[in-house]
Simulated assay, not measured.
Amino acid sequence: MSYSERWQELFGPTDGGADRGGATMTLASTAPDPGSGGGQGKLRHSGGPWTSASGTSAELRTSTETSRAALGPGHEGMEAGAAGFASVAAVRSVLKSWEDRLAAVRDECDALEGALLTVAKEMGETEVAIEKSFRTAGGTGAKPGEKR
């Protein structure tokens, strides 16, 4: 069995023959619009979930740092007001622990922001390369789904 035959066996005819009883595979982002009778033919990565996730990571980094920076001033004067209590050392230890944890979250979000943007860029470049290969594959210069 050739690669092409195996592909058709697994995913259905490549000529749109699902109506002949064959199952077909459709990517969610290229699924047909209800009532349109066909897929949009556009798989998009960049400007979508990866870029959005990067922005969310940047926002989380900022809010985490804001919270971490507010912990110290929020505890100022505590030691003087609670002098002699055994709990002062415990509160100081907990404060340090939370500052360290929030700094780690901040740093992780910072690293994720850049990594997610890189994925968005790479996926965008992949889209361009794939679109170009479809245009040149048939020699027509047409985009998938276009007739010339």
Rank of each mutant, 00 (worst) to 15 (best):
C109A: 14
K121W: 02
G74H: 02
K121I: 01
F85L: 13
H45G: 10
S4C: 03
A58S: 13
G81K: 14
A86E: 06
D110S: 12
G81C: 11
D100E: 03
G77Q: 04
P32Y: 05
E65F: 09
D107W: 01
G21Y: 08
P73Q: 03
R61Q: 15
P32W: 07
G47H: 05
T30D: 10
R6Y: 13
A58D: 11
A142Y: 08
T64K: 06
A129F: 00
S54C: 06
W98L: 09
A31P: 04
P13F: 11
V94L: 08
G39H: 04
T64Y: 11
D15T: 13
E125N: 05
E79C: 03
S67I: 12
S54E: 09
F85A: 15
R68V: 07
F134I: 02
G21L: 09
G124D: 00
E127N: 00
A115F: 06
P73I: 00
S52D: 14
W7S: 05
T26S: 08
G38L: 11
G141F: 05
D19C: 11
K147M: 14
A18G: 15
A115I: 04
L43N: 05
A137S: 13
S29Q: 09
G84S: 12
T126M: 12
G124H: 02
F11E: 06
L43R: 05
T56Q: 10
A129Q: 00
R6S: 11
E131C: 07
A90S: 00
E122M: 12
K132C: 02
A31K: 10
K143P: 07
L95H: 08
G114I: 02
L116G: 03
D110N: 10
G145C: 07
G72N: 11
S63E: 09
S46K: 04
A86I: 03
R101L: 13
G39K: 04
R106K: 10
G22N: 13
R61K: 15
M25P: 06
R135M: 04
E127T: 01
